[in-house]
Design a protein around this nucleic acid. Structure first.
Lengths: 157, 157
DNA sequence: TTGCATCCGGTACCGAGGTACAGGCTTACC
DNA sequence: GGTAAGCCTGTACCTCGGTACCGGATGCAA
């Protein structure tokens, strides 16, 4: 089975070339990332070869942390060629970078806490919750229930 | 409406004290994180006050990056008191820390790529995909379709 | 024309961690 | 006893990014 005439590709070929599966192509079409391609007389999709490039662009943007919705907007903003594209890649990349940095900071705090728990030799969450010198942050809406006896708390599970 | 006799709490009180909602309590019960509590004669759940502590332990473990399934196992391993708990908190925390560090490393790579794109002044993914001096990694199964004319690729969306 | 590979639309499902709603029963307080 | 708040079960739904399956139609080469 070869490509149809006119340098156009069938959906399976596009999927294989871009490294994803056919359902994903249709999914992207539904999500508005891919325009509806031309069809053969029988209704089969016929993609221009540029579709493969576009799919690679999409995957790249995803790897950079953009959601599919953001990717769609990014592609949209590219098409319109606003005189002053107020949501071009630069703008969005800056925002995404800030998000990433916040996320990295969160993860570092968590990793730090884990390291403290390791250093303190914690080996049982329930016991730790009853001790006051455990580095783990057992906070919560500070109402009710005195820090209970570990043995009794454990019975709850 | 006050607490029922015997220092036991109704599900709404437990939920409020732990800062989550009632459906979540039932969800945790289904997931095996919370034992089935006693019931009133009419079938209402009656929790011991320790339940609140246990829920805080669960939330803490979640904040440390453990999934609910891992939390369940963590609590399980605490109850059994294996002579040599081969999956105690120490062990699991070490594993989780490694996961976190890998994730942080990934995010840093991504952040670095974004910073390069910003520095290079990229403002349009589709154009960038056609240029060879763009820092963005437009890789993919290297078959088919020559890097297309940006204008034509753009028409696909 | 036959035969097989491919593609079609529609729908359902995954996982993770919940949340929401409906319709009916219990509890607590006056 | 009346009444309102609270709770019960069961089921469906949410996000996110896909994936799987079905029965039927098409494409293409021999």
């Amino acid at each position: 089975m070869k490509a149809p005439v006119g340098g156009r590709l069938r959906s399976g070929q596009v999927a294989a070339a871009a490294g994803l599966n056919q359902q994903t192509l249709r999914y992207y079409e539904r999500r508005g990332l891919l325009a509806e391609p031309d069809r053969s007389p029988g209704g089969h999709r016929l993609y221009p070869t540029e579709a493969v490039t576009l799919l690679r662009v999409i995957k790249t943007a995803q790897r950079l942390g953009f959601t599919l919705e953001e990717v769609a907007e990014l592609l949209e903003s590219g098409t319109h060629r606003h005189p002053r594209p107020r949501t071009g890649l630069q703008e969005r990349a800056r925002g995404k970078l800030a998000e990433l940095e916040a996320e990295i900071a969160d993860l570092r705090v968590i990793a730090g806490t884990l390291r403290q728990a390791l250093a303190a030799g914690c080996d049982d969450l329930v016991s730790c919750a009853a001790e006051q010198d455990c580095p783990l942050p057992f906070a919560g809406p500070t109402d009710a229930a005195d820090p209970a006896d570990p043995a009794r708390t454990r019975k709850m599970i």
